[in-house]
């Protein structure tokens, strides 16, 4: 490789993210806005990296399921208090009323 090319490659490696860093930014982006440059770097990495694209897809799937999990639907409770639990709680409320 010519010296010039070598220097350019080294330069590019500094600019291009590795998968560790890319996934880090992808995780951050789920909750917060990324800076311009980071956003661009991430997009560029994803364009060329199938594994990280898969990571992002799967993260999205997980996030959607987490959202569904944390949204309580009174018509479809995932768990329910047993009679015993209800009675126990009522007792506590009774005891602590003033």
């Amino acid at each position: 490789m010519s010296k010039m090319k070598e220097i350019m490659m080294k330069g590019m490696n500094k600019v291009m993210l590795d998968c560790d860093h890319a996934t880090y930014l992808a995780v951050k982006e789920e909750s917060e806005k990324l800076g311009c440059i980071q956003k661009l770097q991430l997009r560029m990495h994803l364009m060329g990296c199938k594994l990280c694209r898969a990571f992002v897809e799967q993260s999205k799937t997980i996030s959607e399921e987490v959202t569904s999990m944390k949204t309580i639907d009174p018509d479809h409770y995932e768990v329910e208090l047993t009679e015993d639990q209800s009675e126990s709680l009522k007792k506590v409320v009774e005891e602590h009323k003033n």
Partner: peptide, 23 residues
């Protein structure tokens, strides 16, 4: 408060369960 357990018990229980994953 007398109605808390009956009116809101399950809702709160589910909310808590979805956050701590232990009954």
């Amino acid at each position: 408060p007398d109605k808390w357990v009956d009116s809101h018990g399950d809702y709160l229980y589910n909310y808590a369960y979805s956050r701590v994953n232990s009954k």
